[in-house]
Amino acid sequence: MQAKPFALIGVNINCHEPRQLKEVMEKEQLNFRSFTDTADGEGLGVISSAWNLMGTPTLFVIDHKGRIRYSRRAVPDQQVVDEVLQKLIQEAEGDGK
């Protein structure tokens, strides 16, 4: 997957300082890049609010043009996410050529 036009990006919703988030991710052995959300003063994170977050896990798949193409506000279905990613990666590769 490394060479493909694909990136897994996290948004940690717990509004840690970056250093704290790094510790959490090391402890949990998580190896992707993640935003850390910032508290908005009303008990929510700025990013989480903007994305109308209801809970985790929540996934969005965004295509190479920046459009939302899939979302899932629950435990993801492996097969569907795989299919969507494959299709969109093919689209991205097609456009890149």
Binding site: K4, P5, F6, A7, L8, I9, G10, V11, N12, I13, F32, S34, S48, W51, L53, T56, P57, T58, L59, F60, V61, I62, D63, H64, V81, L85, L88, I89, A92
Partner: peptide
């Protein structure tokens, strides 16, 4: 790139 954005 295709991005899988994961709120966690």
């Amino acid at each position: 790139k295709v991005v899988l954005l994961d709120f966690w």
